[in-house]
Amino acid sequence: MSTNRYLVLSGHAQNSEEAISICADALHKAGIVGDEFGRKCCVRERSYPTGLPTEIPVAIPHCKDTGIQENAICILRLDKPVTFYRMDDDEEKIETRLVLNLAIKNPNEHLAVLQNLMGFLNNSDEIRRCMELPETELIDYLTAKIG
């Protein structure tokens, strides 16, 4: 599996679509994804929600897109929670302050990256660190923990 590139942002969003757009714009500006990536993630999120009911709720929006140039994860730490629907129950809402927008170039790697990430996110100490570490330390931490 390729190494991931990480972008870490902190900010404010009114809703889940805006949170996804903030991530997608950062990935686009970094030359990692094409200009359709954010829209495709939002469309996919409506049909296949990605909210995880972990101790500290997280969302991991993603999509398959030929415009992805390299593997990357944009981490958005929100000042106030936004509503995502749960991955395991699309009727249930969760309030999340941590969004991990995945851009995975090779569709065959998607599942492996998601499984690796799920193991990481099931540990509330790991999620707490994602919320608390300064940006550069968080990038080093994620690179060591996830790859």
Rank of each mutant, 00 (worst) to 15 (best):
Y85G: 00
A72V: 07
K93N: 12
N101D: 12
L111T: 14
A103N: 09
K93D: 10
I73T: 09
D79S: 15
M87A: 09
A72T: 08
L76G: 04
L76A: 05
F84P: 01
H110F: 07
M87H: 10
E70I: 13
E70Q: 13
E91G: 01
K80T: 12
E95L: 14
I73C: 10
K105G: 00
L111M: 14
I94D: 00
I73A: 12
P107D: 00
M87I: 06
K105E: 00
T83P: 03
A103E: 08
N106H: 11
A103Q: 04
R77H: 08
R86L: 08
R77E: 03
I75L: 14
D90M: 13
H110T: 12
N101P: 04
L111A: 10
L111Q: 12
A112W: 09
I94S: 05
T96A: 15
L76C: 05
A72H: 09
Y85V: 01
I75Q: 04
L78M: 11
D89S: 06
L100D: 03
K105I: 01
A72R: 05
K80S: 12
K105Y: 00
D90R: 12
A112N: 14
K105N: 01
K93Q: 13
F84H: 01
L76D: 03
H110G: 10
D79I: 14
L76W: 07
E92K: 15
E70Y: 11
E70S: 13
Y85P: 00
C74N: 04
A103K: 09
D88K: 03
C74H: 07
H110M: 14
E70C: 13
L78K: 04
E92F: 08
C74D: 05
I73S: 10
L100C: 10
R86M: 07
I104F: 02
F84L: 00
E109Y: 02
D79N: 14
E91F: 08
K105H: 02
E70K: 15
V99S: 10
R86T: 01
L102A: 08
A103L: 06
P81H: 02
I75D: 05
N71H: 04
I73W: 03
R86G: 01
I75S: 05
E92V: 14
E70L: 13
E70W: 11
P81D: 05
F84A: 00
E70F: 11
I104L: 07
E95A: 13
T96W: 02
N71T: 08
L98V: 11
E91H: 15
I94K: 06
L78C: 09
N108A: 15
P81T: 07
Y85T: 00
V99T: 08
L78D: 03
E91M: 09
R97K: 15
P107V: 01
K93A: 12
C74Q: 10
A112Q: 14
A72M: 09
E95D: 14
K105T: 01
L76F: 03
V82G: 02
V99R: 06
D90E: 12
R86Y: 02
D89T: 00
N71Y: 06
E95K: 15
D88H: 11
N101I: 04
